[in-house]
Nucleic acid binder design. Structure first.
Lengths: 246, 246
DNA sequence: CGTATCCTTGATTCGCTTCAACATTAGTGG
DNA sequence: CCACTAATGTTGAAGCGAATCAAGGATACG
């Protein structure tokens, strides 16, 4: 059974056309006349409580999801219980693309806080994409960018050391908060040290130590999940410099 | 200037309909009447010599490529020269998906041996995908599977130790050779120890030592690039077992 | 056939993990 | 609203796995 029942958007038929996230989301680049047709695509929303799954590995794939409020992590579990977090998703970002290839989801999507997603029927999306060129193109862009993002994570995991990885992670978070109209320098992380560590291929103690070290160096200030970036160029240099040292 | 000039398929207008790779490639699942229409999509081929790039980071994105013969590596370079190999591609597999998102390629595709690729104009692909449902769906599947594959690499890099990574790599290569009608147990690697290492987030010496250790254990036999898998279950157990030890 | 590239193996170093103890925060029920 | 407890985060000390440094050997290519 699903964690939450789908709720229909009765008074909210104008899902995309009135959504302030649209420029970060799937409808981006689609002209005004076409965008109204997207509203039928996003017929339902779902609310997911903190720590609850939007979908799980093995679930039948039927839809992709656009995050309206809140945030998620995606992870893959090995049989022995090891977890690899493959990404963190914020508002406007798309979840569920992993299921298209096999018709079954290959990872878990877990809410990091109480969240709402727009449910986008994949069948309907394919239909509409055949008619609306902009939608087709934008959808392909979203998938391609996910591939490029994944390559960036491989770069992190394969070629960078602990503090470089964390610096890159913080700069990435900052950039994404900025794109959503929040402060580039001050934000609250929604994930634990362990989840950050899993994403970056590190143990939680190493993440904690790196945070403390950055603070000693005056690069950031940390209080639990609250982060202030005091010297973003310093973080950037750390990635470059430690690199050339190697 | 390109490394090789594109060559038109004069006598080979039936690019996809007569290709024996089609079940591994983009046209898979498309019915016979539609598949003839794909032939116009694949109007040209390109030959790429060993060590030469099919495309480079920064090149304008115009087409995706299906490998007809040979093999490639994809890599990302950091400014300081560090290389991260993001994947190895074999016949039937698709290259260039990274370019759709930004219109510019974000990685290099380098031939590991003299190779031939089918050039698939992206504009034409989008057009045809709007008409041929099967093509649209298959293209989405290809992209989705690339995302899932990337998640698998993240799992390798983030949560596994050196010998587990190499075991997983060998089993993956074996499986892909098998799918192409070659022996599951005996094959020649096309890449160097350094390239394997880069892909797996290890140094070449570590890769070499792991190969030697597998040989001592009777799991494989290695002679330079020639690999015989003697005990594939042993390799599989190594991934499971070392996992639970952690 | 000669030379550059690739591979193997050993000794040492170093960065991250592991183990452990404690501090802090968040969540729960009285 | 406060007390209590579980979850999360910090810090220190020791151990280990992979990187680094170094030298020699095999192979492929022009």
């Amino acid at each position: 059974m699903k964690a939450t029942a789908p709720i229909t958007l009765t008074g909210l038929k104008k899902a995309c056309s009135q959504c302030n996230l649209f420029e970060l989301c799937l409808p981006f680049g689609i002209n005004d006349s076409d965008i109204l047709r997207l509203d039928e695509l996003v017929a339902t929303q779902r609310r997911i409580k903190r720590q609850q799954p939007l979908y799980r590995t093995g679930d039948t794939f039927e839809a992709i999801y656009a995050i309206r409020t809140g945030s998620f992590k995606s992870d893959v579990l090995l049989e022995d219980g090891r977890e690899q977090v493959t990404g963190f998703q914020m508002t406007g970002e798309i979840l569920g693309l992993d299921g298209i290839g096999t018709g079954v989801h290959t990872c878990n999507a877990i809410a990091l806080e109480d969240s709402e997603v727009c449910v986008i029927s994949y069948t309907k999306l394919e239909e509409l994409a055949r008619v609306i060129e902009g939608l087709q193109h934008q959808f392909h862009k979203v998938m391609s960018r996910e591939i490029v993002r994944d390559h960036g994570v491989m770069m992190l995991l394969g070629s960078m050391r602990a503090e470089e990885r964390l610096a890159a992670f913080l700069l990435n978070m900052s950039q994404r908060f900025t794109a959503r109209g929040f402060s580039p320098t001050e934000f609250n992380l929604r994930m634990t040290r362990e989840e950050i560590g899993s994403y970056l291929g590190l143990k939680l103690e190493t993440v904690s130590r790196a945070f403390s070290h950055f603070q000693e160096e005056g690069l950031i200030s940390v209080q639990q999940k609250h982060i202030c970036i005091l010297n973003s160029n310093g973080l950037r240099k750390l990635i470059q410099h430690q690199a050339s040292v190697r």
